[in-house]
Design a protein around this nucleic acid. Structure first.
Lengths: 332, 332
DNA sequence: CTGAAAGCGCTAACAG
DNA sequence: CTGTTAGCGCTTTCAG
C-alpha cells in the first residue's frame, strides 16, 4: 500500500480511503482517485485481508458447517450460499462434521479463533445450550438449518420434518392402502430422525394403526445405512409393506438393497424418502419423496444471515418455516 | 492475551511464548507455564488467528478449488484433504468453480488477498501461464489434480486420463467386440475431455476402426450433459453400440436417458464411464468404469502440499502418476 | 528465564 | 479534500 501511495504521490491513508469500500463519507478528488487507481493497476496491488480484518474486526468470511459432504441434500444449499456470499465479496469456510460430536465442537472452536462474520450450520450433535453459550460468547450471528434446534438466540430455517412426514405417511395409509409401515430413523436419536419419527408415529396413531416392534429401525444417515435397514426388515418374519426413510439417501439405499436381493419396488415394498436429490431420479423406480426447494432454502439462509451481519436485524432468534410438497414417482 | 497475562501475573509476551507453538527455543519455567495455562483455562481464552497470521505471515489455512460440488468424484478427495488438514490444525477454504473461467480467476484473486498457506485445485479453465504467473507472484505452494496441467511450477497428481481411457476403449473393442464406439467429451475442450478423448482416438486407431462423424459429442460435465448426449446419439441414423463417457456423471446420465426412452443397457447400448461414484452402483445396471482410489488421491494431494508448506520440498513442480483399474459391472 | 518494545498491513479518528 | 497518528492482537527481537 505504501508502494501504491508513493507511485501515486499521495499518503498511504489516502490510498486506504479510496480502496476501502466502507469509508465513503470522506470525499476524494476525482483526480487523486484516478492516480491511485492507476497505481493500483500498475502494481497489481491486492489489499491484505488479514490486516484489514485485524483492524476492522470483520473478516469478510462466513463459515458453513454441513453434516456430510457426500449427501447431495447439502449441495444446492452450499452452492446457493456460496453464490450469495460471492456476490457480496465474502469468502466461505466449509466444514464437514460427518455427524461427529468432536467435529462439531471443533468447528465452534475454529470460528472462535478465526472470527468469521456469520455462520450457517446444520447441527446434529451440539445441544441448544452449547450453541447458545457459543453465541453469547462470540456474538457471531448464527443461522441453523433444521427444526431440531430450539431457536433462542439463533435464527432457524426448517420445521418441515414433523408435518411433512405426517402428511407423507398419512398419504401412504389413505391413498396407497398400506397398514404395515416401517420407519428408518437415525442412530443416537440424532436430528432430524426423532422429529420425522414423531410425524410417522402421529400418522400411524391417527389412522389407528399399531407400530409393531421392529418397524422403527435406527441407522446411519447414508446409503449404506438404508441398505442395512432393508436387510434387517427382510430378516423379519412379517416385514412392513411400506417403508419411510428419514432421508433420501437411506430410502435409496433401501431400494437398492431390496432389488439386489431380488425384491420388487414398489410391488413388494413401497419406499418413500425425505428430500429430493439427483440419485432419486437415477434409481429405478424413481423415489417418491418429500420435496423442498433446496436452492431457495440456501438463498434464504444466506440472506437471513446477512441481515444480521449487516446489522439490519438484532435480538432473539427468528424461525422460518420451509414449504414442501409430496412428489409421487415410481417407488410407491 | 493481556487478561491472561494479568491473571497469571506475567507479561503478555510470556503468555505468547507459552501459547505459540513455534517458539520452543526459549525455555519457560514449568511454574510460569502452569500459571499461564491455568489462566487460559479459566478465561477460556482462544488466540486470535487473524492477529497471529498478520504477524507470522502464515494463515494456518489451505484453500481447495473444485470443479463442481455436485460431482461426487470430488467428495472423497475433499474429505480426505479436510481430514489431513484437520489433523494439522489447518482450516480449509473451499471454492466451487462450476467450471466457469471467472470463478477460477476470482479464486486466484481471493487467495492473493487472503493469503493461504497452500492450495489444492482442479483447474479447468485457467491456462498454465495464468497459473504459473500466480505462483510466481504469490509464492503460495499449489498442487493440481489432473494431468491436464503442465507441471512447471506446481505439483500435479494425475495422468490417468489418456492411458486409462485407451485401455478401457481397447477392452471394449477386443473383449466386448464393439466396433462402433462413441465418446462423450466436454464442451470448450475443457480438461479432462481432450486427454481422455485422445486415449479413445488412439485405441480406435490402433484397432483400425474409424471414428465416424457424430461419434464424438461435447457436453457439460454433468448428469444432464450425459442425458443430452444420449439424446443426440439416438437421433443418429446409425448410432454407436458402445459409448464411453468422459466422466461417471455423464455416463450415468446417458444410461438414465437411454432407459427412459425404452432402450436396454447393455443390450442396445454398452455404456462405460470414468471414476467410481456412489451413483455408479445405484443405477441398474451398475456402471462399468475406470476406478481410482479417490480417498488415497486426496490424502496424497494434501501430504504433497504440506511437504512444500513445511519447506521440506522446494523447486520445480513434481508429477505423481495415479493408478487405476477397470471394474466391470453390468453396463457393458 | 522474563519483560519491554517494535511492527505485521491496514482503517479511522483527528487535525488541518 | 488530504496527511499524521494511533492502534487491531499477536510474535519476536533485544535487553536484562
Amino acid at each position: 500500500m505504501h508502494d501504491v501511495a508513493r507511485l501515486a504521490g499521495v499518503s498511504q491513508s489516502t490510498v486506504s480511503r479510496v480502496l476501502s469500500t466502507s469509508t465513503s463519507q470522506v470525499p476524494i478528488s476525482e483526480e487523486t482517485r484516478q492516480k491511485i487507481l492507476n497505481a493500483v493497476q500498475e502494481l497489481g496491488y491486492q489489499p491484505n485481508m488479514t490486516a484489514r480484518s485485524l483492524r476492522t474486526q470483520r473478516s469478510q468470511m462466513i463459515a458453513i458447517m454441513i453434516g456430510d459432504i457426500s449427501n447431495a441434500f447439502y449441495h444446492p444449499i452450499v452452492r446457493a450460499i456460496q453464490d450469495v456470499a460471492r456476490a457480496r465479496d465474502y469468502d466461505v469456510l466449509i466444514s464437514n462434521s460427518d455427524h461427529v460430536y468432536e467435529n462439531e465442537r471443533r468447528f465452534l472452536d475454529t470460528v472462535l479463533r478465526r472470527p468469521v462474520d456469520g455462520i450457517v450450520m446444520a447441527p446434529h450433535r451440539l445441544s441448544t445450550e452449547e450453541l447458545d453459550q457459543f453465541i453469547l460468547r462470540s456474538h457471531i450471528p448464527v443461522i441453523a438449518l433444521g427444526a431440531q434446534v430450539e431457536h433462542t438466540l439463533m435464527d432457524v430455517v426448517g420445521g418441515t420434518s414433523e408435518p411433512a412426514t405426517y402428511e407423507a405417511v398419512a398419504w401412504l395409509i389413505q391413498e396407497k392402502g398400506h397398514r404395515r409401515i416401517g420407519f428408518i430413523s437415525t442412530i443416537d436419536d440424532m436430528p432430524p430422525g426423532p422429529a420425522r419419527c414423531k410425524g410417522y408415529q402421529r400418522a400411524m396413531l391417527d389412522a389407528g394403526l399399531s407400530i409393531e416392534p421392529g418397524y422403527i429401525l435406527k441407522h446411519a444417515f447414508t446409503l449404506d445405512g438404508g441398505r442395512h435397514a432393508m436387510h434387517e426388515y427382510l430378516a423379519q418374519p412379517n416385514p412392513p409393506t411400506a417403508i419411510f426413510g428419514a432421508n433420501a439417501l437411506m430410502a435409496i439405499g433401501a431400494i437398492s438393497e431390496a432389488q439386489a436381493l431380488g425384491y420388487r419396488v414398489p410391488q413388494d415394498f413401497a419406499i418413500m424418502g425425505f428430500d429430493d436429490i439427483p440419485e432419486a431420479t437415477i434409481i429405478h423406480p424413481h423415489l417418491t419423496t418429500v420435496v423442498r426447494n433446496l436452492p431457495e432454502i440456501g438463498v434464504q439462509l444466506a440472506e437471513i444471515l446477512f441481515e444480521r451481519i449487516d446489522g439490519e436485524v438484532s435480538g432473539p432468534g427468528r424461525f422460518f418455516q420451509s414449504k414442501w410438497m409430496l412428489v409421487e414417482r415410481g417407488s410407491v
